Simulated scan of single mutants.
Amino acid sequence: MELIRGIHNLKKKFFHSIVTIGNFDGIHLGHQKIFSSACEIRKKNNIPIILILFEPQPLEFLKIKPLPKRLTILREKIKYLSLWKINYILCIKFNSFFASLSPEDFIINILINKLCMRFIIIGDDFRFGSKRHGNISLLENIGKKNNFQVIKIASMNYLNIKISSTNIRNALSNDNIVLANKLLGRSFSLSGTVIHGNAIGRLLGYPTANISLNNNCALNNGVYAITAHVPKNKNLIGIANIGVKLYQEKKKRILEVHLFNINLNLYEKKIEIIFHKKIRNEKIFSSLEKLKNQISRDIIKVKIYFKKYSNFIKK
């Protein structure tokens, strides 16, 4: 898989290609259905898959409120996409030029002239171009004249709930991690590099690994039952808190993770935190002693949870 950052870095001459376009936020089951279809077409036609995504996501650039919370940052998207052996990821910087680009110009100048598209695989609600005026009918009409085929992938449902990034965000905003995981087809997780914190956790006897979060992270603040993938150690059980902390003289959302029965130096290491259940909302404590007592009670709840649902932890 090759990551191409920007159209100006398209050095390779494509003779034919399979194209799919989207935000692909979350890489959920609906997205995976698109990738599966693309892989089948690649197998039959022996031509590469080019996946196009934009950073920032268009709504983020346009600052249309409320901004949708992020399920996956670019690094996480690339990690999940690598499992599908996508040949090329074309990551285009979304800016005022693309915001004003007509759907026709996007199809002709980029998809046809630069990528020599022969197949485009999209969801049945796909819209694109300036003011989202581009749609499937336009693609099909231009495709008839320019020798490319439009393949529509029908939306998927789980218990009459459409599988979409929006509904996954809604599930997380309601602290329904189980539903979010069903729509994703995997457990929701966050990854990042461990940074130095204020050492209060260590002072209380519960040392934490701290990860700085994007303020647009989809999870609510609060305490969670988690497992962690850390270098050379997988499926470690622990507890995590998401909240606003003072970090380098600025208030930031911080993910604090305490792992049970293990003492590791994780500073500057990248770890992945998998979320299973929210234990409680964020609280403010009047003393460190009250905070320590609450942490002790939270840990008991997490251990009871994992004892009941031990199938989460693969030996």
Score class of each variant (00 low, 15 high):
L3P: 15
I4Q: 09
R5K: 14
G6P: 00
L10A: 10
H16E: 15
V19Y: 01
N23K: 14
N23V: 14
F24T: 08
F24G: 13
D25R: 08
I27K: 07
H28I: 00
L29A: 11
H31I: 08
S36V: 03
S37N: 13
A38I: 05
C39V: 10
R42Y: 02
R42S: 03
K44V: 07
N45A: 06
N46H: 08
N46W: 04
P48G: 07
L51D: 08
I52L: 09
E60N: 11
L62F: 01
L71E: 01
T72Q: 11
T72W: 14
L74R: 01
E76S: 13
K79D: 13
K79Y: 13
K79G: 12
Y80K: 14
L81D: 13
L83T: 12
W84Q: 14
K85E: 12
Y88K: 09
I89Q: 03
L90Y: 00
L90H: 09
C91P: 12
C91N: 14
K93F: 09
S96I: 02
S96H: 00
F97V: 04
A99W: 06
F106Y: 10
I107V: 02
N109G: 05
N109F: 01
N109C: 02
N109P: 02
L111F: 00
L111Q: 00
N113F: 08
L115C: 01
L115P: 10
C116A: 15
C116M: 12
M117I: 11
I121V: 06
I121K: 07
I122E: 11
D125L: 11
F126A: 05
R127P: 07
F128D: 06
F128I: 02
S130Q: 07
R132G: 02
S137R: 08
K145D: 09
K145C: 09
F148D: 01
Q149A: 07
V150Q: 02
V150N: 01
I151V: 03
M156E: 12
M156L: 12
Y158W: 05
T166C: 07
I168V: 01
N170R: 12
N170P: 14
A171H: 04
A171F: 07
D175T: 11
I177T: 00
L179C: 10
L179R: 07
A180P: 09
L183T: 05
S191E: 14
T193P: 08
T193S: 14
V194Q: 01
H196Y: 14
N210R: 03
L213F: 11
C217D: 15
A218Q: 10
A218H: 13
N221L: 13
G222Q: 02
Y224E: 06
I226P: 12
T227P: 12
K232L: 05
K234A: 08
I237L: 15
G238C: 01
A240T: 05
N241F: 08
N241Q: 05
K245E: 15
Y247L: 15
Y247N: 15
K250Q: 13
R253W: 14
L255V: 04
L255H: 11
V257F: 00
L259G: 04
Y267Q: 02
K270I: 14
E272F: 15
I274A: 01
K278A: 05
I279K: 04
R280D: 07
N281L: 13
N281V: 10
E282P: 03
K283N: 10
I284S: 10
F285H: 07
L291M: 05
K292N: 06
K292D: 05
K292H: 06
Q294P: 09
Q294M: 04
I299S: 08
K301F: 03
K303S: 09
I304W: 11
K314D: 09
K315P: 15
